[in-house]
Design a protein around this nucleic acid. Structure first.
Length: 937
RNA sequence: GCCCAGGUGGCGGAAUCGGUAGACGCGUUGGUCUCAAACACCAAUGAGGUUACACUCGUGCCGGUUCGACUCCGGCCCUGGGUACCA
């Protein structure tokens, strides 16, 4: 071996070994505790990995390797969420089947991932676009179709149980999640219904069902667009007009699980930020619905008898001085008086014209119109005027709100603008002439039956009163809607449904998978149907139309972690044996952008599968870490403006001197800049128009400017891990990415500090080989100091890994290697344990050294994590920092078991303290054993 | 506006329970080695101050609690992310 560590040869050797020997293949092993470490499913994009992607993968790999050393049987798989829009878009442009593009992209990903030395069990790799995988996505869809949510059992039950009940007692007593407009029927009525009528009714209960929903339809593209694909009313791509269109789409009744989705958040170890986002998204609010009688004298006959509102502060109902309904509310024409007609119509038209953006930017501006009509407050029989205002949304709750100016700022603004009374309802409310006070403190005033009560008593009293009179009830409202589960696209899972008489029916389970048919073009049909409409003879039993939309991107990723447990099973999505062994994900690592998408849908499907008794855990991911985004870090060169033009040689000025010239900043490829110094030759070669470039240097160097931006090709700031692996090796890259800072924190990518990690890796090698490349490890007995260095590291590496502090582990390992180098330690007993400590971070180097130390090749991952022995760290003395009035002035050593009085005497006698005391008596002396001494003067 | 993170040297960051602020690394400066360069090694490196010490200041800002605050409390400012009038 040579004196210098040859990382290229060593890394290549072990990657090949691991591959050929399937070193990381995992199976069920009941003799060990299990541990499941999962990375979020990547979509294999055509661009391959950039340095931001592996951050989470490196962390999860370190945990996997650490857990193995700690005696766990670790499941650590990788696979691909391979259905998706980019491949389809490419197919539309080139005519190439998306499966081919996807295959190529996956090959690139796998090559890049393997190159980083991850300990994945590749035999478990899955792809959502493989029929053997989506067979089970379709199967789960079928189970959802065949179940409803029973609120009494608080779980999903088979539809067959529902139909049995309907046949016996109708649906009046059935408490189940269903559409708002589900009619009440008796057993006789049900039994007399046609098959068609029964099926139509059942769709109102099924957990997945076709639903009319409003979508962004783009006729020019022939497709539906997501909100973020629409900019200023036109499609982001192409700028074609987009219209709101009602369309039949499959929906998932996720709202049935709203309560469990919120409550389950208390069980999981996820960041508060993510949990809070999910809670807000689900938006559970506890309150009451109250029916206000419409005062008939001014309204037309079609006007409803009551207007119902939902409120979270029913306790303030005696403070109501107006009611507001949404301008687009159906009731508007019936409750508008002749005198107010012109004003109301003008307001409704104006409200329609307002874009979302206008509404958002004018939060503080009050607008509205009086309808001329009134409702009656059920509690005090007061007449309350009805207004329209666009701050009320038709789609949320009942589209009507009661206005309580003293308790709600928005209502206060409205009341002030329209000169409506502001009635205090609590004696604790302050300054309500100036602004609303939403306190729940104090006792009620001006409040009829609740005068003198507290918040809790009042709410209960009012709800009881409402329920008794049939004028309202306590109610829980959710913000979350049911989830749309269709895409008018080709490259997704076919829905295993055919239509008979316009009603959806499932195909047989034995007919799964329903494979994606071949089509000639990846575009919608001429009649505007999804691409699957192009498939020839694609009919169920040659007669019934299949569903033509496909499943959305989140279908496969909502259950994939179970497939890894038993990736090749043809009988089930995974065997019960495997599921009951691996149970759930112990550590899940991925980006926070999936907070309300993937992570919510997955929890929903998991709860459903649990209701069916197919999986054991209510929550699929016990612990979640969101790695921070890696931002790009761009470099700039500054071209002198006078050098721009035909026939002129381009002239660039170094960043420190740029103020003296008229310049144009230009992005420069970060890969030809090292520590902000531009490689001039590489720069000339980079672009042909710069071949003749000249430079104004500072200190003989060209210094580039720096800015943090998004990582993107156009900014020339994308760093490809392949380049770095070639330059410094995968081990160094792993160490460096972890060393950048806490995993959760967003940070700009900066290659500048990487030299330090590279030096560290090379320094490890020099513990084993001398300058002449001679092996220097001996079997001598280690010294006390050597043991101390080792065990201090063991303790801190273990503690830090247990709290996922990956960056401080690197410093610890650096300190350990530095100190062993200073001690010139080359003892097998020490170095052997060091290699194990290092192996999660630098697996290639560790595997090589482990073999050189005489162990069987490829077994470092089966080693035991070194046992910490505290006795090596015991010190005879402790160096006490001595502070005076809280500022450290000196250090004095005392025996660790010295009594506080002894320490106090010693400290007070010391020269430095004497000087500070200046003959006076200290006011106070605090001695904290083995920590600090503080003297107050 | 609301919710969630965060703000510490020239830079990335450390300080885990309220107990020596700046570990570790980068960069910079000086030195050793070399014909030279690279590599490597040694030393210095928060600011002011000093030959050197001493000392003073210092964790976004203002205030508080404490023998002692980057850490706890109250108020404010700024940056990043999420969300959109949710009754």
């Amino acid at each position: 071996m040579s004196a210098e560590y040859n990382f290229r040869a060593v890394e290549q050797k072990w990657r090949k070994f691991w591959d050929e020997n399937q070193t990381y293949k995992t199976g069920i092993d009941t003799s060990k505790p299990k541990y499941y470490v999962l990375d979020m499913f990547p979509y294999p994009s055509g661009a391959g990995l950039h340095v931001g992607h592996p951050l989470g993968y490196i962390a999860s790999d370190i945990v996997s390797r650490y857990r193995r050393l700690k005696g766990f049987n670790v499941l650590h798989p990788m696979g691909f969420d391979s259905f998706g829009l980019p491949a389809e878009q490419y197919a539309i442009q080139t005519g190439q089947h998306p499966a081919i593009t996807t295959e190529e992209n996956i090959a690139t990903y796998i090559r890049q991932l393997k190159q980083l030395g991850f300990s994945y069990d590749w035999s478990r790799e899955v792809r959502t676009s493989d029929a053997s995988f989506y067979k089970w996505t379709q199967w789960i869809f079928m189970q959802l179709f065949n179940h409803y949510y029973d609120k009494t059992a608080d779980k999903a039950l088979p539809i067959s149980q529902l139909t049995e009940r309907f046949a016996q007692e109708g649906n009046a007593l059935v408490k189940a999640a269903c559409d708002e407009d589900t009619p009440i029927f008796s057993a006789e009525e049900w039994n007399a219904m046609s098959e068609e009528a029964q099926q139509t009714l059942l769709l109102k209960y099924r957990l997945t069902f076709p639903d009319e929903s409003v979508v962004n339809w783009c006729p020019a593209l022939g497709t539906v667009l997501a909100n973020d694909e629409v900019k200023d009313g036109v499609s982001e791509r192409g700028g074609y007009p987009v219209e709101q269109k009602k369309m039949k789409q499959w929906a998932m009744r996720i709202t049935a699980y709203a309560d469990r989705l919120i409550d389950g958040l208390n069980e999981v170890d996820w960041s508060e930020a993510i949990k809070e986002q999910q809670r807000n998204w689900i938006g559970r609010s506890q309150g009451a619905s109250v029916r206000f009688k419409v005062e008939r004298s001014t309204v037309s006959e079609q006007a409803p008898e009551y207007i119902e509102v939902f409120t979270t502060r029913v306790d303030t109902i005696y403070g109501v001085s107006f009611m507001v309904i949404a301008p687009e509310h159906d009731y508007v024409p019936y409750i508008t008086t002749e005198a107010q007609k012109a004003e109301v119509e003008a307001y409704v038209n104006w409200a329609k014209s307002r874009s979302e953006l206008d509404r958002v930017s004018e939060v503080k501006k009050v607008s509205g119109a009086f309808t001329g009509s009134y409702v009656i407050n059920p509690f005090n029989d007061e007449k309350v005027p009805i207004f329209l205002a666009d701050y009320v949304l038709a789609g949320y709750g009942t589209g009507a709100v009661m206005g309580v100016p003293s308790g709600d700022q928005r209502d206060w603004n409205f009341a002030t603008h329209f000169n409506l009374p502001i009635i205090p309802v609590l004696d604790a409310q302050k300054d309500i002439e100036q602004q609303a006070d939403n306190t729940k403190e104090g006792k009620y005033i001006n409040s009829g039956i609740i005068n003198g009560m507290t918040y809790k008593e009042a709410t209960a009293t009012l709800i009881a009163w409402l329920e008794e009179k049939g004028l309202g009830k306590g109610k829980t409202q959710f913000r979350m809607r049911n989830a749309v589960f269709s895409r008018q696209r080709y490259w997704g899972e076919p829905v295993p449904v055919y239509f008979k008489d316009g009603l959806p029916y499932l195909i047989q389970e034995s007919e799964l998978p329903l494979e994606l048919p071949a089509i000639d073009k990846y575009l919608p049909t001429e009649t505007g149907e999804p691409p699957l409409g192009r498939a020839s003879n694609w009919k169920y039993q040659d007669q019934y139309e299949y569903e033509l939309s496909t499943m959305p991107g989140w279908a496969g990723s909502s259950w994939y972690w179970y497939r890894y447990m038993d990736a090749h099973n043809n009988e089930a999505f995974a065997s019960q044996e495997a599921i009951n062994y691996w149970k759930a994900v112990d550590l899940y690592i991925g980006g926070s952008e999936h907070a309300t998408g993937h992570l919510l849908y997955s929890r929903f499907w998991n709860k459903f599968l649990k209701d069916l008794g197919l999986v054991p855990e209510e929550e699929f991911a016990k612990k979640l870490i969101n790695q921070g985004m890696i931002q790009g870090r761009s470099n700039f060169v500054y071209r002198v403006k006078s050098s721009v033009g035909e026939g002129k040689k381009p002239l660039f000025v170094s960043a420190g001197l740029k103020e003296q010239y008229e310049i144009t900043p230009l992005h420069v490829d970060v890969n030809i800049v090292h520590n902000e110094v531009l490689d001039l030759e590489a720069f000339k070669a980079w672009r042909s128009d710069f071949a003749e470039a000249e430079f104004i240097l500072e200190d003989g160097k060209y210094i580039c400017g720096v800015e943090v931006e998004k990582m993107s090709k156009s900014k020339y700031n994308v760093v490809n891990p392949d380049v770095l692996v070639d330059r410094v090796g995968a081990d160094t890259l792993r160490v460096y990415e972890m060393f950048l800072g806490p995993l959760e924190q967003a940070k700009p990518w900066n290659t500048n500090g990487m030299d330090g990690s590279f030096r560290f890796v090379k320094k490890i090698w020099r513990l084993f080989y001398d300058e002449q490349g001679r092996w220097k490890v001996t079997n001598d007995t280690p010294s006390k100091d050597e043991y101390k260095v080792l065990h201090a590291a063991i303790k801190k590496v273990e503690d830090d890994l247990e709290r996922y502090s990956f960056n401080t582990v690197v410093s610890t390992l650096m300190i350990c290697v530095n100190e062993l180098s200073s001690l010139k330690c080359a003892k097998q007993a020490i170095l052997e344990q060091l290699v194990v400590l290092l192996s999660p971070y630098t697996p290639h180097l560790a595997e090589e050294l482990w073999a050189l130390l005489g162990h069987e090749a490829g077994t470092v991952s089966q080693a035991q994590f070194p046992a910490f022995d505290a006795s090596y760290l015991v010190e005879a003395n402790f160096e006490y920092p001595i502070s005076i009035n809280g500022k450290v002035r000196t250090n004095i050593a005392f025996a660790v078991d010295a009594q506080p009085t002894t320490i106090q005497e010693g400290v007070l006698a010391s020269e430095v303290v004497q000087k500070w005391l200046d003959g006076k008596q200290p006011k106070k002396v605090i001695v904290v054993p083995k920590r600090i001494v503080n003297i107050v003067i």
